[in-house]
Design a binder for these strands. Structure first.
Length: 95
DNA sequence: CATTTGACAGGAA
DNA sequence: CTTCCTGCCAAAT
């Protein structure tokens, strides 16, 4: 398991089901460091493989986004809607 | 080893 | 509701 925290994050994000969204905090927690949500964002920004890392399924604590490395936040929201995620204004609607 | 940075979170004003 | 500050963690330089 020579996997860095970031590697683990990629694995977790890649496992997010379609129509589902996890917060940076959740991903960080699942990755083993419940306080490393910042490192999670850094990993997403690196995004070594967008085809396997749906970073658009990772949102902030308020269900909003802070950026998207492949088109912009607007596109990110659009993709999530296409995935079947409900939106509340410009933020993901949890439930 | 020390410093800087970042797609964050939470609280205060 | 918006803006600023602080705290936390990991990777990069």
């Amino acid at each position: 398991m020579n996997r860095s925290f970031t590697e683990r994050v990629y694995d977790i994000v890649a496992k997010i089901p379609k129509g589902g969204v996890l917060t940076y905090k959740q991903v960080a927690k699942l990755a083993g460091s419940p306080g490393a949500f910042r490192a999670v964002g850094s990993a997403m920004r690196n995004n070594p493989d967008k085809a396997k890392i749906p970073c658009h399924r990772v949102v902030g604590s308020d269900g909003g986004m802070h950026g998207y490395a492949f088109g912009g936040e607007s596109v990110k929201i659009k993709i999530l809607k296409e995935e079947g995620v409900k939106f509340k204004g410009e933020k993901v609607d949890f439930e």
